[in-house]
Amino acid sequence: MVTHRMIDVNGIRLHIAEQGEGPLVVLLHGFPESWHSWRHQFGPLAEAGFRVVAPDQRGYGGSDHPEDVSAYSILHLVGDVVGLIHALGEERAFVVGHDWGAPVAWHTALLRPDVVRGVAGLSVPPPFRGGQPPLATMRERFGGRFYWNYFEQPGVAEAEFSADTRATLRKLLYSASGDAPGAGRPEQALVDDLERGWLADAPDPEVLPEWLTEEDLDTLTESYAQGFTGALNWYRNLDRNWELTAPWQGAVVSPPALYVYGDRDLVPAFPGTPELIEELPELMPNLRRKPLVLPGCGHWTQQERPTEVNEALLDFLTELRD
């Protein structure tokens, strides 16, 4: 049974969900999600003898939402993970992330390999620092229409998304899933009309896909009662993160690693990402298998394909647990 509590970490309070006993596995959600995105992983991992903990990361759900934009840098986010591991009485843990949670997981392994027994990323591949700040790069390439740049404008995306939170989440989840028409096209990441907003022409399903229930949507909607600002502040730190991680230019993720993504996910189709994924076996010294591609799966990897994701995670974790 999944239980919930608050825990003090890195100067803030985090809401965590947990189940099981054994080696610690920390599950990190992405945007626009919460701990609930891992609902299909708790039981199987706990039954296999692991202690599973999924926080609402800072700025999300029941956790603290610092007001300062700078409080959402990658160093803060990694600090939360390291602090959480230690607050739970452990020295090391397996760290698994999806979407934004994946860069946090990868950076935790990059910056603090001493606390990471193994790292797995879903959708977003490992962070190899580019030569230019990412927000500035995307702004120049797409004329400000890339969704990162839309998100970086204070108050703009908040206003659009908060007008009808449930409809926003329904559209975001469906449009990036493998069920949506044209899923996996990189142009999905572009805002067609900056005045009308990102979701103006997003598909809105009359019936939810099989992997998402009305109850799931209720739970997620409730977690955004405090709005979207905390979550969007993660994007507003992308250029700052690039500056802060300069000392790790050229460094590699050294702990044992696993990467999983869907072939209808728009993120692996971002400019330069397909080439990066092809090179991962050479770039990642401890990648335990070639990147696992899930046919027909969109962006919400562990929700759309829980059986395949659980099998891959259990193979990876079990091999490393002893």
Rank of each mutant, 00 (worst) to 15 (best):
Q19H: 09
P23G: 00
Y147I: 03
Q153P: 12
L317F: 03
S175H: 10
G227T: 14
P181N: 06
P203C: 09
T168M: 06
N310Y: 01
D68I: 09
G43T: 15
T273K: 00
Q19R: 14
E18C: 08
E243H: 13
V267Y: 02
E195M: 04
G43N: 14
T165L: 03
E152P: 05
I16Q: 11
D201C: 06
P271Y: 05
A163Y: 09
L45D: 13
P133H: 01
V119G: 11
L135I: 07
G22V: 12
F142W: 13
L232A: 05
P247M: 12
P255T: 12
T229I: 14
V156G: 02
E319M: 04
W234N: 01
D99T: 07
H29D: 02
L317H: 01
R39D: 05
Q19S: 09
L84W: 15
T318Q: 13
L217D: 07
T137P: 06
H4W: 10
T3H: 11
S63W: 15
W248H: 15
L287H: 06
T307H: 05
L172M: 10
R129D: 03
L77C: 11
E311M: 09
V96N: 04
L88D: 10
W100V: 09
T165E: 08
R129N: 05
D263H: 00
P271D: 07
E210C: 06
G250M: 03
P126F: 04
E275Q: 09
A159W: 01
L135H: 01
A159T: 08
F161E: 11
R5A: 04
D315E: 15
A183T: 11
T307N: 04
A157W: 03
I12V: 15
A200C: 10
H65A: 11
G59E: 05
L27C: 07
G79Y: 11
F161M: 14
V96K: 04
V293C: 01
R117V: 06
L135R: 01
A120I: 10
E18P: 14
L212G: 02
A231I: 12
E214D: 14
L313S: 02
L258T: 03
E214R: 12
E187Q: 09
S254R: 12
G250S: 02
L276I: 02
L238V: 13
R288M: 15
Y147H: 05
V82T: 14
E210I: 11
G11L: 13
E91Y: 08
K290F: 08
P281E: 08
L266G: 00
P247C: 12
G59P: 07
K290S: 10
V115E: 08
D216L: 13
R112L: 03
G178E: 00
P181W: 07
H4M: 07
T3Q: 11
M6G: 03
V69N: 09
T219I: 14
L122Y: 02
A87P: 09
P295E: 01
D80I: 08
V96S: 05
Y224Q: 08
